[in-house]
């Protein structure tokens, strides 16, 4: 064991160096490596998460855009169909009104014609009666005594009828 002494090897000094290094190892591990590697790891995770989040946001943005476009298209189609429906309805209403007005007009014309006819008939009868009377008066004047009134009337009637 003389060689150990000559090389300066002493178990107490050796042990001291082991302890010394162990303390250094502990302190560096506790106060440098662990926090530092923790930070690196956490940062790596955070970056990964952020990337995933960004992807998700972009995806949902795209989805929302697509949905909005779909909605707009749908709404446009619906508006178009509503307008068409309205035009259709209006057309129908217009047709109905025109027909009604025509009917009314026709009815009014018909009634007016009837009334005119009736007036005409009435006027005719009146004229006939007046004409008879006038004829009687004229005949009376002409035939004074010859023919009695009754006979004369009968005669006129025969003539007219």
């Amino acid at each position: 064991m003389e060689i150990f002494t000559k090389l300066g090897i002493d178990w107490r000094l050796f042990l001291f160096q082991v302890v010394n290094f162990s303390i250094l190892l502990f302190v560096l591990h506790r106060f440098l490596y662990k926090p530092l590697l923790g930070i690196l790891e956490a940062r790596r995770k955070k970056i990964e998460e952020s990337m995933a989040q960004a992807d998700a946001i972009a995806r949902s943005q795209k989805e929302a855009d697509e949905r909005a476009a779909r909605e707009v298209k749908h709404a446009q189609e619906k508006a178009k169909s509503i307008i068409e429906q309205a035009i259709d309805d209006a057309e129908k209403v217009k047709d109905g009104l025109v027909k009604k007005a025509n009917d009314e007009a026709a009815r009014l014309i018909e009634r007016a014609k009837k009334e005119i006819g009736a007036e005409c008939d009435k006027a005719m009868t009146e004229i006939k009666r007046e004409a008879g009377d006038i004829a009687i008066a004229v005949a009376e004047k002409v035939l004074k005594e010859e023919i009695t009134k009754e006979r004369h009337e009968r005669l006129i009637k025969e003539t007219i009828a």
Binding site: F16, N20, V27, L28, F31, L32, P35, A42, R43
Partner: peptide, 24 residues
């Protein structure tokens, strides 16, 4: 031995300084 204590002290001091300055 004195010098090795010095080396350890230097590294420990650096570790503590670094620890306080570490930010995420």
């Amino acid at each position: 031995l004195v010098a090795s204590l010095g080396a350890v002290a230097v590294l420990v001091a650096l570790a503590f300084v670094a620890r306080r300055k570490l930010v995420f």
